[in-house]
Design a protein around this nucleic acid. Structure first.
Lengths: 195, 195
DNA sequence: GTCTATACCAGGATAGAC
DNA sequence: GTCTATCCTGGTATAGAC
């Protein structure tokens, strides 16, 4: 049966999210208008409101979906090996997952201040849950004497901050392969937490 | 001689920059209006244009002044000691300088995308000059065998990214003193670049 | 589900009086 | 140097026809 002319609910929705994702990442949430998003999708601005109640929800859902994907992907990979090995896998996972989604990552931490308080709290909970995964690894390693960390909370934030730096410079096809990047960062992280 | 009524060129200019700084840091450049800035200063929006040709220049000058201050402050502290000692001083300087100017720091790397291409290029040059200072330290230490770094360019970016992470969580009067924070980060940095 | 049209408000910037 | 008033543009969101 042919689809009704002008009816594209199954493809317009995703296309709106993709367009918003790219535009928010490039120009920032506040600088992007609903008309710009609509233009990129190829519909009129009013049509967007069949898919999102407002602009804020568009941003929030992009961020929430990203954080939930991140948590789910990490949970799927988690195992009970020794802490050093688990930390090595965390480093590789973090780098690769984030490099695969540069726009989502950029938005997820540049646009926090443009969330309403309720939405902000929900995203923060997800972010903290992810940080707790890493802190758990560091605590385990510390307990069994593999790591030597004066403050695991700060070390957690320091490691994540360091790894996030990859996003600012890495380009596929550049001087270094992904394996090399992963190796270099793993070396630095390993030494930073080891006596 | 009494100043002409309504004439405040010597204080209004700085007050505009202060207001813009705080508002841009809190809400983002694109989300802040000239009318908001004017309201905080206590003048009408039109009066702002006696001090800045436009909103873009307001942002650019805040960022340029900050980067120039950063470079000048670091140059004043630089010396020719051994690389390990110089690196330790860099870590302390970076943390303290940035924690003293949270708003400037936040803007300087959150609002890069809201600069015109010319302005962006100028800020980027300043940022790179600062990074080069650190890379020089790492290269020196590597040359004399004090450091063991597989890629000094990446190590430079990794160290700066890690140190910048302090800004996201440190609050004066919190659990850790500034000296303790500096010590913890110095330990991690030292180990990360040492075999 | 999408369109056209529009309500309504706020943005940056300027002109001219004081 | 600041004010008031205003121009012009563009923002989010909605109503109602198709």
């Amino acid at each position: 049966m042919a689809r009704t002319q002008g009816s594209h609910s199954d493809i317009t929705g995703p296309r709106i999210r993709e367009a918003a994702l790219g535009l928010f990442a490039r120009h920032g949430y506040a600088a992007v208008s609903m008309r710009q998003i609509a233009k990129e999708v190829g519909v009129q601005a009013g049509a967007l409101y069949n898919y999102t109640p407002d602009k804020q929800s568009l941003l929030f859902r992009l961020m929430r979906d990203h954080m939930q994907d991140l948590l789910a992907a990490y949970k799927a990979l988690e195992d009970g090996g020794d802490p050093q090995d688990t930390l090595r896998r965390f480093v590789g996972f973090h780098i690769r997952f984030h490099l695969q989604r540069p726009d989502e990552v950029f938005i997820a931490y540049m646009e926090l201040r443009n969330l309403t308080p309720d939405n902000f709290a929900e995203i923060e909970d997800l972010r903290r849950a992810y940080e707790n995964s890493l802190e758990g690894i560091l605590n385990n390693g510390q307990k069994v004497g593999l790591f030597s960390i004066s403050d695991t909370k700060i070390a957690t934030l320091a490691v994540i901050a360091m790894l996030n730096g990859v996003m600012t410079w890495y380009r596929a096809g550049g001087r270094l392969s992904l394996d090399e990047v992963e190796q270099i960062y793993w070396d630095m992280v390993r030494r930073a937490v080891t006596a």
